[in-house]
Design a protein around this nucleic acid. Sequence first.
DNA 1: ATATGCACCTGTGTGC
DNA 2: TGCACACAGGTGCATA
Length: 270
Amino acid sequence: MPELPEVETLRRGLATTLVGRRVTAVTVHERRLRRRVASSFEAALLGRRIEAIRRRAKYLLLDLDDGAVWLVHFGMSGTLVVLPATAPRRVHTHVVVAFDDGRTLHFHDPRRFGLMRVGRAAALSELDALGVEPLEESFSASFLHATAHRQRRAVKSLLMDQRLVVGIGNIYASEILFAAGVRPSRRTSRLSRADAARIVAATSAVLAEALAARGSSISDYRDERGEPGAFQKRFRVYERAGAPCARCGVVIRRTVIVGRSAFYCPRCQR
DNA sequence: ATATGCACCTGTGTGC
DNA sequence: TGCACACAGGTGCATA
């Protein structure tokens, strides 16, 4: 579910309520997530204080006062919501963590593609092979062009490859390529330096706009207060197959690239 | 080494 | 109404 704008929105919201709070209870109702929740999970969290909350790629990292990190990934359908201690858990609420101010954090994930574990930062292998952050300067036109030039796959698959650049998933890949005027099926080997520059500029513009809208809510995504984002109202191409392009009026198309839907305007994107 | 396919899950919408 | 099927904000492992 969440891509960078959704995870970052959650990070900001959770930071204001959870930093400084101490864990008073941990209940795991279902251990079968993408990886089995370790039997040591509860003990690793119990009694710890949250010192900071960071984001890397689509992962949330909660720094604990003993130096360990509580790592969360949301898969396709995961959410984290802050609720009163009395709130009932839902069918797919798999983990409930209580804090010393009486609030609880519910991890809800119907499809169970999410991840929840605690470990030393250096031992969290999920973070090892991640690429550059798309809103940092290291994601530059020269970097993208050089990387793209060495490969010949569809550019959309490159933008979604977390080993190169992180945080961009299926929604934002289509939206970024529309903003850049590049067709998602374009071979990376045929990207010009100017194309790369437009993709980098479009990436920061689209992600910034999505962050300002507090992310996209199609079905599952909610922020830490249970509120949906608003960027789905501003989709230019995603899930708009058959509708007219807002820029030129031509009908938006859907195609499949590496097994995922891609949406584009056949006139605005070449 | 690099690129694709498929598996992991549940829920929802569509068409017969 | 029931059923089959396609599809959904992701990722990691097997396979070509």
